[in-house]
Nucleic acid binder design. Sequence first.
DNA 1: AAGCTCGGTAAGTCGTAGCTTACGGTTAGT
DNA 2: ACTAACCGTAAGCTACGACTTACCGAGCTT
Lengths: 109, 109
Amino acid sequence: MTNATEMLTALGDPTRQAILDRLSHGPLAVGQLAEVLPVSRPAVSQHLKVLKDVGLVFDTQEGTRRLYQVDPEGIALLRRHLDGFWERSLAAFQQRARNERGEHHDRDR
Amino acid sequence: MTNATEMLTALGDPTRQAILDRLSHGPLAVGQLAEVLPVSRPAVSQHLKVLKDVGLVFDTQEGTRRLYQVDPEGIALLRRHLDGFWERSLAAFQQRARNERGEHHDRDR
DNA sequence: AAGCTCGGTAAGTCGTAGCTTACGGTTAGT
DNA sequence: ACTAACCGTAAGCTACGACTTACCGAGCTT
């Protein structure tokens, strides 16, 4: 699936954050990730499945190995989600700051 | 603290995502959030503490109530983090696509 | 075809995150 | 001062998620 909130939920785990961070520098195989990370290879494999299901990474068969890499479109989707999020909260913030200064509050009169 | 990875970890929980989503439209009190969300008021209070500790929300005393709202700077920080993330993965992606086409691979010869 | 490397999946354990109820503290109103 | 509204924290329970070991399949090499 390609949902922004599910991506955020997937990125909640620190190990998955580390995996995506490594993959952002270039494609890596499962074993290579397991060498660096403080978890076993099957654990890495399970995390990669989660990241793949939400559309943050994709894999390509490379001989006997399987290369994983970050899907730029997935990151872009998450980025746009935060963008709209940021705009709303900023608008609400500025509106509130305006009410603070000129204390009209004659909204419904 | 004001760390991007800790923000991502905090946003891993769907309830906290929902809380931040509501708050992005404007300030809300704890009780108002609890009315809407499918959890109890103390649960909301605990989630707000997590969101506040990572710098995603801040609160202001308003009489007997306590208004929470999104911190735009917190979202901005997370946004920039994803930006750098996206640029790296895109660069790695394009580089790989280039290697696919012209199969030079005379890197170390 | 046998042996090797690599990786996904199953099964099971364990810690902890999220939830609830109960309680106490603070502010405002009468 | 008493009461009510609102909220944070403590204590405790439960479910789930992250991890491990064990097993098996797929792809090269010789």
